[in-house]
Design a protein around this nucleic acid. Structure first.
Lengths: 238, 238
DNA sequence: TCCAAACTGTGTATAGTATACACAGTTATG
DNA sequence: CATAACTGTGTATACTATACACAGTTTGGA
């Protein structure tokens, strides 16, 4: 019996029947997740330990296990709560690709405003939560408008979310110990001592490809993907 | 002083001066990394603990710290060793995009043959190793042939590696506890009970978008990106 | 009205993690 | 040949997640 998966689902899909006897819980799973999110935003996901979180809440460590069967359930709820974020893609009259572009930007905003989000969603063991699925549904709906078949909608979605996550990964380079600039400088130094092996890479580093960005890399790749999808849509309708 | 970063670099860029006195080490860092790779391939990255690895090698746990300053250094060497993998992109006479496609497939092969590779490379704190950089150099060289400027080469590279990693992430869904099919079935059941909220998503699941793939999703997104790059190259040369 | 079931949070205990530190044995160099 | 520099060992520590027994609280049914 796949017990773990089901439990994770329970924490995110409010499936607990709300018992009648016994004392009322002093908190709710949602409240705990909110505090955990604030903690993770401020100090990283590694700071969210059961002991630390309990201390933050004025509870004992083990009290948390009355709200979540395991830590994975807590993280799952953190993820889905953070996914309850405004998705503004403009009027439905806008063409699908314009709205999809906005979708990607809103989605990226979750990753950038919650640095832990990427790590927390990198191992998709349990089932996804309702808010996460809503994001997915929205993107797939736009792709459906484009005229792609269901399987291709999925493929296109994967390319886009992959790009969002890829950019989020890139943004987090050297985030912890050193600053990003320091990381880039270090790489440059390393490359210079081996410049014969990596001449072109050295060009890129010197052009500031790694240190400064300002979102142009995100835009570039997103445009490539959207144009590529557009081409395949045109092929189909032609 | 960013000591940790430098140490990681040392383990990967053989910078230790090879001492003269004292007994010879019974092993080398590279050998240890190879055993760790075999262990991770078989039982996952979580199985690679210092104690387990030491037991596997017939050493004490603490003996490993004579070879690596910290576990992160070991993982860094695992990553770079696994990156020492054949990159066959065909004759240099082939057009850059055909070779870049092959590059992406070879790169994906690393991720699929080493399921731990994705996780091990998800937090890029330290500097990259020489083999990793060689992969990057190769891709950037192809993009340079296309005529893109250095900054755009970087942007394009990011889109491609992002797609490779995105697909690797997708492939690992539900890999652990349940099979992937079970995961998809579970999702389908969940969606059916909320079918009014996720009608289009349900279509995709029913079309087998999640359960079966066979690499078509990878191909689709890769083609989109490569065509998108091609368009931008044409614009520039026109 | 009262009792027992069901629930809450607490305290304690355990197994597993990385890794710091002191030590004993070994080797090449002065 | 003595000592410095290195090897691997053993022990200890601080942190994880979480299992389990318990004491106190609330409520449904008698």
């Amino acid at each position: 019996m796949p017990a773990k998966t089901l439990n994770v689902a329970n924490s995110v899909w409010g499936g607990k029947p709300a018992p009648t006897r016994g004392p009322k819980p002093t908190l709710s799973a949602g409240q705990i997740a909110q505090v955990a999110i604030r903690l993770a935003d401020a100090e990283g996901l590694a700071a969210v330990t059961m002991q630390r979180l309990a201390r933050e809440l004025g509870l004992t460590t083990m009290a948390l296990y009355r709200y979540f069967q395991a830590k994975a359930d807590l993280v799952a709820l953190m993820v889905d709560s953070a996914s309850d974020s405004p998705l503004r893609v403009g009027k439905p009259s806008l063409p699908w690709n314009k709205r999809l572009r906005k979708w990607a930007h809103c989605c990226l905003a979750i990753y950038t405003s919650h640095p832990w989000f990427l790590e927390a969603t990198s191992s998709r063991e349990g089932i996804m939560g309702p808010n996460e699925l809503s994001w997915m549904e929205a993107a797939l709906a736009m792709l459906a408008e484009s005229g792609l078949r269901p399987k291709q909608r999925h493929d296109a979605f994967l390319a886009i979310i992959g790009h969002v996550r890829g950019h989020a990964t890139f943004q987090q380079i050297g985030t912890r110990a050193n600053s990003r600039k320091e990381w880039s400088r270090e790489l440059g130094r390393m490359l210079q001592s081996e410049s014969h092996r990596y001449p072109i890479l050295l060009d890129v580093v010197r052009s500031g490809g790694f240190s400064e960005d300002g979102g142009s890399a995100f835009e570039f790749g997103l445009n490539c993907i959207l144009d590529g999808i557009q081409m395949r849509v045109s092929k189909r309708t032609r």
